[in-house]
């Protein structure tokens, strides 16, 4: 039979040589070979304090596999620098990067919760939309209150639209008044009427727990 079997899965010689030293990894993180950059990004997970150089690289790197590795490491480091840096990236011109960052921030619920209030009133409506997107994964008692406040106050229709979608899933009768008020704020917008009616229906005959 032409099946072959080695005794051990192969150990890549390059992997053996891979540095563990923060300074060397920082150099590898800007190497021209994306394989080396990616490996450095993943290995930096062992270094508290690597978030700043990772964020710096994240903003520039055009290679998806490197950015993905950087984000994985930032999620596992999950420190303040990581979160602040990710928020900066939400303002990037690069749509792909913004979406990757939203995905990553959804995996840092505890770290993102304390800054949520300020994200939800950011001057940039896109950042507010992303903040609502991130709320989707947040396991936090405040989620419904935050969403209610968005649909009560936010002047931007698309921020409210994003919030209503989520309220259809997590809302209780507490949100009812805010939803009805939202509909009256945008009476000529069929989408808002549709979304509010759907959310109200989903909330249903709730006891208001």
């Amino acid at each position: 039979m032409p099946f072959i079997k080695k005794n051990n899965p192969t150990m890549d010689s390059y992997e053996h040589d891979c540095s563990r030293d923060l300074n060397e990894l920082a150099v590898q993180l800007v190497d021209e070979n994306p394989v080396i950059r990616r490996s450095a990004a993943l290995n930096l997970a062992e270094h508290q304090g690597a978030s700043e150089i990772l964020i710096d690289r994240l903003k520039q790197d055009r290679d998806i596999s490197v950015r993905d590795a950087i984000l994985t490491t930032l999620i596992s480091l999950g420190d303040t620098f990581a979160v602040i840096g990710l928020v900066e990236c939400l303002r990037s011109e690069d749509a792909a990067l913004r979406n990757e960052v939203v995905d990553a921030m959804k995996q840092l619920p505890e770290k993102v919760a304390p800054i949520m209030t300020s994200l939800l009133v950011d001057v940039n409506s896109d950042v507010r939309i992303f903040a609502v997107n991130i709320l989707e994964s947040l396991r936090h008692l405040q989620v419904e209150t935050w969403l209610d406040r968005v649909i009560e106050d936010d002047p931007h229709i698309n921020v409210c639209a994003t919030a209503v979608d989520l309220l259809g899933e997590v809302g209780t009768s507490t949100s009812r008044a805010a939803l009805i008020h939202l509909r009256s704020r945008f009476p000529d917008e069929p989408y808002i009427c549709f979304a509010v009616n759907l959310a109200l229906k989903r909330i249903g005959e709730d006891k208001g727990t």
Binding site: R38, S39, L42, S65, D68, A69, T72, I75, K106, Q107, S137
Partner: peptide, 13 residues
């Protein structure tokens, strides 16, 4: 979600 992400990194490499 996080374990899926890590598994995907592993498969990629």
């Amino acid at each position: 979600d996080l374990s899926r992400r890590l598994a995907a990194e592993t498969f990629f490499d």
